[in-house]
């Protein structure tokens, strides 16, 4: 797996815990959604907790846990399955401040969509990272100077820019 953050391939500080692995006392671990409740109960304050969820998850299932959650990783079963984008939006709307990660075979051309919806990092398989290297991911962030929408992150909004131009 390769991890992309701010247009760079970076080291992953988090470790994905297999369901049969014991919960550690410390460190940054990502557990599966069925295991989340239990993990919340037993993992002490020295450990940082993240969760990987299917893109069909009801956001309310995570909101309650969110003060303790430092990372939510949303799986993309296919790059063309855009449900994760809406889920990310809903989590941000509900006030989730931790790291939002998109995990799956996303392609570089979707990077700015992901950022717009509130994702911080993208996790892709190695074979994909080989074809779509760091340069392509970095370039993907800078294709557009601005976007037409308002209320999405990442780039400046054309609507806002027009509005302030009209006012000045």
């Amino acid at each position: 797996m390769a991890l992309i953050s701010n247009g760079r391939f970076v080291e992953d500080a988090w470790r994905r815990l297999a369901d049969e692995e014991a919960l550690p006392k410390a460190g940054k671990v990502i557990v599966s959604l069925p295991r989340l409740q239990h993990a919340l109960e037993v993992v002490g304050p020295e450990a940082a907790l993240g969760v990987i969820v299917p893109n069909t998850t009801e956001p309310s299932a995570l909101i309650e846990a969110s003060p303790r959650l430092e990372l939510v990783s949303i799986s993309f079963p296919a790059f063309s399955d855009g449900r994760g984008f809406s889920l990310a939006r809903l989590l941000r709307r509900a006030g989730f401040k931790g790291e939002l990660r998109a995990s799956g075979r996303l392609v570089a051309d979707q990077y700015s969509h992901a950022v717009g919806c509130g994702f911080d990092t993208i996790e892709i398989p190695d074979d994909l990272a080989e074809r779509q290297n760091e340069e392509q991911w970095r370039a993907a962030l800078n294709v557009y100077a601005m976007s037409y929408q308002r209320g999405y992150s990442g780039r400046g909004s054309i609507l806002e820019a027009r509005r302030s131009a009209a006012r000045s």
Binding site: F79, S80, D81, G82, F85, S86, R89, Q110, S112, H113, A114, V115, G116, C117, Y144, S147, Y148, Q149, Y152, G154, I158
Partner: peptide, 13 residues
């Protein structure tokens, strides 16, 4: 047209 152009959330419906 403008609102829908490259919409971050609704481009993979």
């Amino acid at each position: 047209r403008q609102w829908s152009s490259l919409h971050p959330e609704f481009s993979f419906l």
